[in-house]
C-alpha cells in the first residue's frame, strides 16, 4: 500500500510540480485549479505507464482525486 502511494505521489509531482508534497494525498480536480482535462490525461498516462494498467474510458473521466486513483490502483493489484 505504502509503495503504491509513494509511486502514485511521484506521478503527481511530475504533473503538478508546484503542488506541495503534503497536499498531494488530499488533492482532487475540484480542489486544485491546475488539475484540468489536459493534466488529467497526463496523469492517467503516467499512472498507466507506472503501474502497467489501462483505465477504461469512464474511469479516465471519473477518477479525479488522489484517493480515488490510489484506490483504483490498489483494487487492480488485488485482482
Amino acid at each position: 500500500m505504502e509503495d503504491r502511494r509513494q509511486r502514485l505521489t511521484v506521478c503527481f509531482t511530475q504533473v503538478f510540480p508546484n503542488l506541495p508534497l503534503e497536499r498531494i494525498g488530499e488533492v482532487s480536480a475540484v480542489s486544485y485549479a491546475d488539475w484540468d482535462s489536459v493534466t488529467q490525461l497526463l496523469l492517467v498516462g503516467l499512472i498507466e505507464e507506472e503501474f502497467g494498467i489501462r483505465l477504461a474510458i469512464e474511469e479516465i473521466a471519473s477518477l479525479t482525486s488522489f484517493e480515488l486513483l490510489l484506490d483504483h490502483v490498489q483494487r487492480h493489484d488485488e485482482r
Binding site: Q14, P17, G45, E49, E50
Partner: peptide, 12 residues
C-alpha cells in the same frame, strides 16, 4: 521514451 522521462526532461 517513457512519458515520465519526457516530462522530467521538459521540466529540467
Amino acid at each position: 521514451m517513457k512519458l515520465a522521462a519526457a516530462l522530467a526532461l521538459r521540466r529540467e
